[in-house]
Amino acid sequence: MSATLTEPDAAPRTPTTRPPRAPRESAGERPRRKSLPWAPWLLLAPSILLLCVMVLYPTIVMFVNSFTDLQIKNKMLGTSPNFVGFDNYIEVFTESDFPAVLARSLGLMVVLTVLIVVIGMLVALLMTKLSKGWRLAVSIGLMLAWAMPPLSATVVFGWIFDTDYGLVNWALNTITGTQDFRGHSWLIDPMSFMMVLVIIVVWQSVPFAAVTFYAGLGQVPDEVLEASALDGASAWQRFRLIIMPYMRGVLTAVLVLETIWNLRIFTQVYALQQQGGLASETNILPTYLFRQGLGEFGVTAAIGVFMVILLMAISYFNVRSSLKDEAEL
């Protein structure tokens, strides 16, 4: 994409560049290739070292540990753990609340992803209809929500939903003219905890979806839309039959990213639990793993391996589409 964009700019220069280059180097488009075959590897060495030590190595260690009964006492005493086969995996899936946590995580992920994509698309469509000043104001508002550190956002929302002095309880009391909501706890009940969590995450994530969709909408040619409108297509038909096909790539990318991100939420859930939720009823995968604590390293490794496989399976689509982008080079 960007390669083709730079072509017109570079074109006038080529006549002057090409002739002197040819005699010096015969490699054509990539002149340094033959003279320094080790150069790229030298440039890549620090990254390769870092990623091997910090990603590849722990992945292998975690995979191996997941088949052992490694515990903190092995670490303290320096003894080696026993090989236990698939026992950890069987234990995690049959004798723990892991299946419930997994179901909750997936349910939350679906709700969040759908809300974020739908609301993001609606905000993006709204932005295309606004005058310049309004659009700028909306963008700045979205930026603020996007930029807020997740922990700060959760603390603030926790305060807004506070049991005693929260704004929401005050507003509900004022609107209903009663004192029904005095001392109402929003976090103690798992369902309303999840609702508050969804509000926080959607609030923070819509800006990314909206801004990305807005950028994508800019690629839909006006002429096609005008022509279809002249031919009598309704707004919904134009959206479904013209805008959506143009947006397919952007939409897929956002869907995959949001799916992954929404399965990996830790900060918001943990911080909200700290403010008065029941951790055992509201854990999702990352917080569940975190709350297993240090000790049963074999079991936590099995949970970790499962999470890696689940997320890698989903991100397969994203890697593939990124590679398509790369192939255009």
Partner: peptide
């Protein structure tokens, strides 16, 4: 790089802790 980018670091929290 693309694959590594997708590896969920939080899944490995205790392995990295030990490391």
């Amino acid at each position: 790089v693309l694959v590594v980018q997708m590896v969920p670091g939080e899944a490995m929290m205790f392995t990295i802790y030990n490391m």
